[in-house]
Design a protein around this nucleic acid. Sequence first.
DNA 1: ATAAATCCTTGATCTAGATCAAGACTTATC
DNA 2: GATAAGTCTTGATCTAGATCAAGGATTTAT
Lengths: 241, 241
Amino acid sequence: MIPSNKNLSSYRSYLLKLPIFQGLSEQQLAPLLDTMQVKQYHKGEMVSFNADEHSKLYINFEGLFKLSKINERGDEIVLRIVDKKSIVSPMHFSQYYDVVADFITNTTLFYFPEESIGKMMADNHQFSLNIVQFLADGVQALMLSAEVLQLKTAKEKVGWYLVHSKISNTFELPYSKSLIAAYLGMKPESFSRALGELKKDGVILDNKKIKLHNGDELCGYCDPVTGSNCAFFKTSECTHS
Amino acid sequence: MIPSNKNLSSYRSYLLKLPIFQGLSEQQLAPLLDTMQVKQYHKGEMVSFNADEHSKLYINFEGLFKLSKINERGDEIVLRIVDKKSIVSPMHFSQYYDVVADFITNTTLFYFPEESIGKMMADNHQFSLNIVQFLADGVQALMLSAEVLQLKTAKEKVGWYLVHSKISNTFELPYSKSLIAAYLGMKPESFSRALGELKKDGVILDNKKIKLHNGDELCGYCDPVTGSNCAFFKTSECTHS
DNA sequence: ATAAATCCTTGATCTAGATCAAGACTTATC
DNA sequence: GATAAGTCTTGATCTAGATCAAGGATTTAT
């Protein structure tokens, strides 16, 4: 069933499992969930997420989009790829800041108005902590990606993304190559050439599936935050021992 | 008087004026302020701010340092320049993330242990909101700087920094050219050449003082968030009308 | 005031990745 | 199953900014 503003109650159990609502009972959340709305966006649509019109907190229920900034020359930076269960909160942006949400597939967003989030925070300390955690994660993800974009070569960027996919997406590239290239601040051509370099080292990408000759070929591209989710973290095989 | 762990009470009025304590009375803050500690760092010192050892919230009372990441090749990215009254909170980093604090001048930091911040948040909703605001500002600053680093040419980066300094620092460069160059992800040589380009357009930098031929030469480099603090914002002279 | 250290500028050269172009492969549409 | 529309790859060339090098200016130390 496609969610509509009429049948939202059936999604409560889905919502309760999200990290942002962690530690909260259905009862505690009821006043917030009652204010939830739904909006559908279409593939190809581009929406300016400015705090003026979008002072809300969005949950991506279904679909995929990227948050980008584009300059006069048409160059793009992808600030975030927003997939299922991810949260975007233009309500926390300055009044004058805006990013473009560029929908890669048809997308269904749930959202809460700023006031209901504010009220929930005032009434429930755990929810405030969850918001703090969400923002702290955002700060850290942005610091990590600044580091990747600025300090790594093309080959290192792709290696880093592959090791990330290996660990969190079970050896599978989650998005198209050109989307990942944009996220890594490089052109598809450079991405493709970097993959060619990695192939020489025993890293093969077979229809989005990552295949490794020995198994440890990507470890040199790993970072400690990603590494902490790896099965070999802190073993002798891991470079972050 | 140099602050020591013995004479901290004399800094309460200074602390009360900080945005992070906004809306809070001295009385409300007392339990938190009682847990405050001081630490001095020396010019040239480099400290790894990892969440393990530095799970605290720091206030820069006096001095200047940068938060950087450095790769194997010695390339550096400056994530933030931390000057007086700025706040850094490694307590919000993941356990495995770390940045280097590189002290540019002798620096005095005040700090609070994670538990006292947590307790203050639990006891006082306004303080939680201030922490949320602090983190949201961090997210936005990082998004803006990702955009600047990735999408602007050398000349645009310098123009952007100058217009920023013009508006927030009354026509004066707040730091050394090489520090600003590093913050903008460029080498001092490129910074110098970009300044040369801008000079042709009527932007003169005379011993850190910004001097303009007509007055509007930098407006094309402005962004709306910075612009909102400009006297001409939303007048016909402003490009963000 | 002078010496030493740092910081900044200018010029010559180099290079990683962008751009341009064309063909190959993959996926969707009728 | 043919055709069309994307998406990806490979090669040739270009370019913004890095690197290397040396001299000039400014700050700090003595």
